[in-house]
């Protein structure tokens, strides 16, 4: 919960939104905002990013994807409010079969997102990254040395290093799937687990 003084013009836009979705209430002389409701409220248009795909947007939408061993990588320019999400399946394009699917591989997905954001903003960008995913949901695949989740995490971080993009937050590994919602208005990412747990990146 966040308490804000009444009549602060800087906060007016945010408060208007909070009131619209019922995330705030007046308690005596303070307006109390339930930040959890704001973070999780689906007030933006949802745009789904399919497996092996990527999307770049400058509109205030929510980019959404669901991952298990795959990685959802989000790049964001917080000044221009422009960003993109890729659903990475495999660590390297050399593992694939000559497909025109840049979002599918860690090495090509970062290239594609950077290029896509630059094309929209028509300028060099100060980008930051957040990643989620890379789980291993079946013990037997781990026993067989097929921990593709861990390989995806490593390859994604290496690709970010090559582009000198700072990784500011991550929620990776484990044995559960994740639903990733990337809010392009705020840059906040909400990761929902099947058990109802919500993590904010």
């Amino acid at each position: 919960m966040l308490s804000l003084p009444e009549g602060n013009p800087v906060k007016d836009a945010g408060l208007a939104m909070a009131k619209r979705i019922g995330a705030c209430q007046q308690v005596e002389h303070q307006i109390v905002v339930d930040t959890n409701t704001i973070y999780t409220h689906p007030h933006l248009e949802e745009v789904r990013v399919d497996m092996a795909g990527f999307k770049v947007e400058s509109r205030p939408v929510e980019l959404v994807t669901s991952v298990g061993s795959c990685i959802g990588i989000c790049l964001y320019d917080s000044i221009r409010k422009c960003g993109g999400l890729a659903h990475i399946m495999l660590p390297q394009s050399s593992l694939g079969l000559q497909e025109p699917l840049p979002g599918k591989y860690a090495d090509t997905a970062v290239d594609a997102l950077v290029k896509g954001i630059r094309e929209i903003t028509k300028s060099e960008n100060r980008l930051s990254a957040k990643i989620a995913g890379g789980a291993n949901m079946f013990a037997s695949t781990l026993a067989n040395g097929l921990d593709i989740g861990a390989k995806n995490i490593r390859a994604t971080k290496e690709a970010l290093e090559r582009h000198r993009i700072r990784l500011i937050s991550e929620d990776v590994g484990g044995s559960h799937g994740r639903r990733i919602s990337f809010n392009l208005a705020s840059g906040i990412i909400i990761v929902r687990l099947h058990n109802g747990e919500i993590r904010k990146l």
Partner: peptide, 13 residues
């Protein structure tokens, strides 16, 4: 878990 999250392990292979 979620359907897609379960399926993606196999689709990667």
């Amino acid at each position: 878990d979620g359907f897609d999250a379960i399926l993606d392990n196999f689709l990667i292979k």
